[in-house]
């Protein structure tokens, strides 16, 4: 059975580079647009890479800054200095 890892983010300028980085780094990601929010789903796992976000943002970005734009999630979370991920392993 399908197990979607998921992040829901604000749909605003601040989150846009993160949304774009997720779409670029997670092939097969499903994008669900809602007024004010965007839900990104990917089979098994979903990753946000610091380097990809920084590339789009043009400044350094701490993965913990995701707290400012995250609305919801599904999956087990892991974060370190280089990335933020949600995944199902079982």
């Amino acid at each position: 059975m399908s197990q979607l890892a998921s992040l829901t983010l604000y749909h605003n300028d601040e989150a846009r580079p993160i949304i774009e980085a997720i779409i670029a780094d997670n092939p097969g990601v499903r994008v669900l647009n809602m007024p004010g929010a965007v839900k990104l789903d990917c089979e098994g796992s979903l990753v946000v890479k610091r380097a990809s976000v920084e590339e789009r943002l043009g400044r350094t970005w701490d993965p913990q800054e995701i707290h400012l734009v995250i609305i919801s999630m599904a999956g087990h979370l892991d974060e370190d200095d280089d990335q933020f991920s949600v995944s199902w392993k079982h």
């Binding site: 809602m34 007024p35 004010g36 929010a37 707290h67 609305i71 919801s72």
Partner: peptide
């Protein structure tokens, strides 16, 4: 409770509610 509902607030022009809603949801 929060995601579709707050999204509904945004859709209905209530920017203040969607903002507290998503701020709480973060």
């Amino acid at each position: 409770l929060f995601v579709p509902f707050m999204s509904g607030a945004a859709y209905n022009g209530d920017m203040s509610t969607v903002t507290f809603g998503f701020s709480a949801q973060s």
